[in-house]
Amino acid sequence: MNEPSGQYQRDIDQLRERLGYDFVSLAFAQSAQDGFVLTWQYASGNLNDRYKRIVLQSGKGIAGIVFKTGKPMLVADVKAELDPNDMFNYPILVSERLSSLVGIPLYQLDRVEGVLLAGYRGGNAVHNEDFRRIYESSNGQIGDFGIKEMSFP
């Protein structure tokens, strides 16, 4: 991450304001000696600082799934789409009380290096259109990470 940390925070603050999300966060993969774990590094609209203590293995949690697959993830309704007994696998959803979210892989040199998460707490729900809105609003870039343009049915 060559970009000053303040730029990442400004980018997600602006994205949250422009698009009206309740919560926007960035997770980045840590070094190989840390086992390529993912941690939430920046947040905007957060209820608390618990996100800073969340550590995910590749393939676990929202960030881990998006990071491992390199594919975006959309959960329009957390209660309807995720098993309530499985919520411990999604600590960011629990700590931030998210009801709907989108997770997008962030690329650097054609390799997934991080995850952008945007979501709502209340009655609003994310839709496939949110991928396009985020891409256009961010100009395909968060800090020095790229967002690939994606089309969904």
Results as ranks from 00 to 15, higher is better:
78 V>M: 04
28 F>Y: 15
125 A>H: 04
89 N>E: 03
124 N>A: 01
75 V>A: 01
41 Q>L: 10
9 Q>D: 08
59 G>D: 11
104 I>A: 04
9 Q>G: 11
135 Y>N: 00
144 D>S: 06
39 T>D: 04
42 Y>R: 05
113 E>F: 12
82 L>G: 14
6 G>S: 15
29 A>P: 10
79 K>T: 09
130 D>W: 00
144 D>V: 07
25 S>I: 05
52 K>C: 13
14 Q>S: 15
49 D>A: 15
111 R>W: 13
141 Q>T: 13
137 S>F: 02
69 T>Q: 11
13 D>E: 10
42 Y>K: 13
47 L>Q: 12
53 R>M: 08
79 K>Y: 06
8 Y>G: 11
46 N>M: 13
45 G>H: 10
132 R>I: 01
122 G>M: 01
93 L>H: 06
97 R>K: 15
85 N>G: 08
91 P>Q: 15
9 Q>V: 07
26 L>N: 14
8 Y>I: 11
4 P>A: 05
53 R>Y: 10
60 K>E: 12
25 S>C: 09
51 Y>S: 02
142 I>C: 00
104 I>L: 05
132 R>N: 01
137 S>N: 07
150 M>S: 14
83 D>M: 07
73 M>L: 15
52 K>L: 15
56 L>M: 04
14 Q>T: 14
57 Q>D: 13
106 L>R: 09
15 L>F: 11
57 Q>N: 08
22 D>S: 04
24 V>F: 03
131 F>W: 00
37 V>H: 05
48 N>E: 10
130 D>R: 02
43 A>I: 06
66 V>K: 03
64 G>L: 00
88 F>W: 14
144 D>Y: 05
107 Y>W: 12
31 S>F: 08
98 L>N: 05
76 A>I: 02
10 R>E: 06
57 Q>L: 12
42 Y>Q: 10
136 E>Q: 08
88 F>T: 15
58 S>R: 10
124 N>D: 06
152 F>L: 06
10 R>I: 12
107 Y>I: 06
73 M>N: 09
40 W>A: 07
75 V>C: 03
59 G>A: 06
95 S>K: 09
38 L>A: 09
106 L>Q: 10
80 A>I: 09
42 Y>F: 13
19 L>F: 02
102 V>P: 01
151 S>K: 12
17 E>P: 09
52 K>I: 06
152 F>Q: 07
72 P>I: 07
108 Q>D: 13
16 R>W: 02
27 A>H: 14
116 L>K: 03
23 F>K: 09
53 R>H: 08
143 G>Q: 00
67 F>P: 02
25 S>Q: 09
18 R>P: 08
59 G>K: 04
30 Q>Y: 08
100 S>W: 12
90 Y>F: 10
90 Y>T: 03
69 T>E: 06
2 N>T: 13
111 R>V: 08
93 L>D: 09
48 N>K: 11
145 F>R: 02
8 Y>K: 13
142 I>D: 00
86 D>Y: 14
126 V>L: 00
142 I>K: 00
131 F>Q: 00
150 M>G: 04
